[in-house]
Design a protein around this nucleic acid. Structure first.
Lengths: 223, 223
DNA sequence: GAGGTTGTCGTCAGCACGACGATAAGCAGC
DNA sequence: GCTGCTTATCGTCGTGCTGACGACAACCTC
């Protein structure tokens, strides 16, 4: 039985929080189609690798970033999404701590961080993929401990709070947030160290704890 | 540029609640590989159709069921998941009200309802796909109004409650559940009609409302 | 030391929830 | 009709989490 033949790619929505903005990693396309336009990083799945493996490989090859969290997002396969041939892409969502994009060894055009609200007019259906990824990230922060994926190995409660504020675009009360995250068992692990960053009282440093679910969730009210 | 060629299929996790059990729709495979074993319904994506379109088409062709809700679940593409060739499947999750499987016109072997806890040893990686689908359904019922997707067009609060009890495997207090669902704006729309089913006081009949999110969610405590 | 900035602890009212009592409205049996 | 049973619906009460906000602690600069 002969079945239609597809090309399968993985595309990556790589998000981070830097300079008080939610940013996505984009690459400039050098070849047709959509040459000169921005696109999400990605590439073809190899004949002998799994989808998740391909996503991790592309992330390492194209960006070299330290990754905080990687999960499958969704698949997109509209018949005309690639003018060359029938392509189904399996989009993945990666949350990474703030870090500069390594310039060396990238096999694509230079990658760079772009605030998500400025990332419009992407190649293929990547506008839609990006929107879905951002939406997924916003939703998951409500009921999981994934905010820590945006933070470095050691971080303060204020850094974690700023992540939530940036992702949700909403100010949070520092005292209530502190009570919530420190009150959830195994969410954070104190290191005993403290940090002074800009003038205030030194803050405790934490690592990620073993808990990955938040019960009850954060941000339940609309206002 | 020549890229590896994949076959792309859609597989369907079709769930319903019947006889106080969460059931999944399975078909008996008639051809190799895995001939004689049970599998999720599904089929190849056609050259000119979208993934969601393919899922809806397969659902209609293979089962003819009335569908309450259909969404993409996840994609699976382990290199050895199909011994014949490289196949990537885009699994979809369908929630449908309780109804018998139409026997006529099915182009696959006869489909039937099987309680999910009895559905083991499926073909391909369908054990995993089914587990992911059930998990997704359980999670989504917490914070969306998707429980109504398991109910017929008109239903009582008790029917909806039984859906939640079966999916979660946990008894719910009828009075608190009633307060919750009737207190959420636009979740249910009263028809004004009542039904007598088995001896008790007649219950009000409702239709699905316009709200699809539950804020705050149900079932927040662990016990 | 004064003033500013940031981190952390406490208090309090409001609201949603779980537990559960009470009433309403049908049916079966006598 | 009345009793008993079943199911639906309304109310009440205590508890726990939340948002708003006051207070204090511990660093900085001047």
């Amino acid at each position: 039985m002969a079945h239609p033949s597809f090309a399968v790619t993985v595309d990556l929505v790589v998000l981070t929080v830097r300079t008080d903005e939610l940013c996505v990693l984009l690459v400039r396309r050098g070849v047709e189609p959509f040459a000169g336009q921005d696109a999400l990083p990605g590439g073809f799945v190899r004949p002998d690798e799994d989808l998740g493996t391909a996503a991790a490989r592309e992330l390492a090859e194209e960006t070299g970033l330290v990754v905080g969290h990687l999960e499958q997002l969704a698949s997109y396969g509209a018949p005309d999404r690639d003018p060359r041939q029938r392509v189904v892409t399996v989009a993945h969502l990666a949350l990474v701590p703030d870090q500069p994009v390594p310039t060396a060894g990238s096999d694509a055009a230079e990658a760079r961080w772009v605030p998500v609200h400025e990332a419009r007019g992407l190649a293929f259906d990547h506008d839609r993929v990006l929107a879905d990824g951002v939406e997924r990230a916003r939703a998951k922060l409500e009921y999981t401990a994934l905010g820590t994926a945006f933070c470095p190995a050691e971080f303060t409660v204020a850094q974690l709070r700023r992540v939530y504020e940036v992702v949700w675009g909403r100010a949070l009360d520092p005292r209530n947030f502190h009570r919530k995250v420190t009150g959830t068992p195994d969410l954070l692990a104190a290191t005993g160290e403290t940090t002074t960053r800009d003038g205030g009282r030194p803050a405790q440093l934490f690592r990620r704890g073993t808990a990955d679910q938040l019960h009850p969730p954060l941000l339940r009210t609309d206002t």
